[in-house]
C-alpha cells in the first residue's frame, strides 16, 4: 500500500490541530494570571494552588468519584450477566431485547435526564429514598451504563471459542465450575473494557447528573458548567487541565497495555 502523500498528510495535520486546539487552549489558559475573562495577563500557577483550598471543587471531586465507582460497579455486574445471558441462552423475546439494548446508547441524554426527573418526582412522593441526590444520580447513571457494558462484553463473548468450554465439560467440570474457571477468565478482558467505558461515561456525564442531582451532590461537570455559565473560570481551567491530563494518561496507558499484553486466547 502507498504511504500517505504530502496532500493527505497536510489535511490530516490540519485536522489534528483542529481536534487539539480546544484542549491546548484550556491548558494554556490554566496558567493565565487574569481573574476574569479570556484576556492573557501573564503566567501563573496560583490557580492550581487555589484549587486545593476550593471546598466546592474538592467536594465535587469526591461526589464524582463516588458516583462513578458505585454506578460502574452495579452496571458492570448487571451488564456482564446480561451479555452472558443474551449470547448463551435463547428465550422468547431475546431478539427484541438484543435491539432494545441499543436504545439507551442513542437516546439523547436530555430525554433520558428529563424522563428520569419526571419519574423521580412522580414516584418520589411514595418512596422517600428517591428524593433527588446521590441515590437518584447513581440509578440514572447505571441505566445508561448497562447497555455499553453489555455491548462490549457481548462482543468479547461472541469471539470466544466454544471448544474450550466443551473441553472443560467433557473433562467432567460442572456447569458452575466451567463458568468460574473457563468462561469467566476468558470474558474478563471484555468485562474490564466495559467497566472502563462505563466509568469514563459516568465521569463525563453532565446532563443526567444535572437533572437528577440534589443539594450537596454537585459533581465536577456540574461545577464546571455553572462556573462557565457565570463566567468565573480561572481555577476551572486548572481543574479542567487536571481532568484532561488524567484522561490522556488513562488513554495512553490503556493503549500501551493492550499493545504489550500478549492475548493468550486470540479471537477467532
Amino acid at each position: 500500500m502507498r504511504r500517505p502523500g504530502w496532500f493527505l498528510s497536510a489535511i490530516a495535520a490540519g485536522l489534528y490541530i483542529f481536534l487539539y486546539a480546544p484542549i491546548v487552549v484550556i491548558i494554556v489558559f490554566s496558567f493565565n494570571a487574569a481573574r476574569f475573562g479570556t484576556v492573557w495577563e501573564g503566567f501563573t500557577t496560583k490557580w492550581y494552588g487555589a484549587l486545593l483550598h476550593d471546598s466546592a471543587a474538592l467536594s465535587a471531586t469526591k461526589n464524582t468519584l463516588l458516583l462513578a465507582l458505585v454506578s460502574t460497579g452495579i452496571a458492570t455486574l448487571l451488564g456482564s450477566l446480561l451479555a452472558f445471558g443474551l449470547t448463551r441462552f435463547d428465550f422468547p423475546g431475546r431478539k427484541i431485547f438484543d435491539r432494545v439494548l441499543y436504545v439507551p446508547v442513542f437516546v439523547p441524554d436530555i430525554v433520558l435526564a428529563t424522563s428520569l426527573l419526571l419519574f423521580y418526582s412522580l414516584v418520589g412522593s411514595f418512596i422517600p429514598a428517591l428524593e433527588l441526590g446521590m441515590t437518584t444520580m447513581i440509578l440514572g447513571h447505571v441505566t445508561f451504563q448497562i447497555s455499553f457494558v453489555a455491548i462490549v462484553v457481548r462482543a468479547r463473548l461472541a469471539g470466544l471459542d466454544p471448544a474450550l468450554e466443551e473441553a472443560a465439560r467433557d473433562l467432567g467440570a460442572g456447569e458452575w465450575k466451567t463458568f468460574l474457571h473457563v468462561t469467566l477468565p476468558l470474558m474478563l478482558p471484555g468485562v474490564l473494557a466495559g467497566a472502563m467505558l462505563a466509568f469514563t461515561l459516568s465521569l463525563d456525564d453532565f446532563i443526567v447528573s444535572f437533572f437528577t442531582s440534589g443539594p450537596g451532590s454537585t459533581t465536577l461537570p456540574i461545577l464546571i458548567y455553572s462556573s462557565v455559565k457565570r463566567g468565573l473560570t480561572p481555577d476551572i481551567n486548572a481543574l479542567a487541565t487536571l481532568i484532561i491530563l488524567i484522561s490522556v494518561l488513562a488513554t495512553v496507558s490503556l493503549t500501551w497495555l493492550q499493545k504489550n499484553k500478549q492475548d493468550p486466547h486470540p479471537k477467532k
Binding site: 481536534l19 479542567a240 484522561s247
Partner: peptide, 20 residues
C-alpha cells in the same frame, strides 16, 4: 491514539474551550 484522546476527554471542557 491521538484521535481517541479527545474522544475520552470531557465534552463540556472541549466545548467551553471554543468560547476562549
Amino acid at each position: 491514539t491521538l484521535v481517541v484522546i479527545p474522544f475520552w476527554t470531557n465534552l463540556l471542557i472541549r466545548t467551553y474551550a471554543w468560547q476562549i
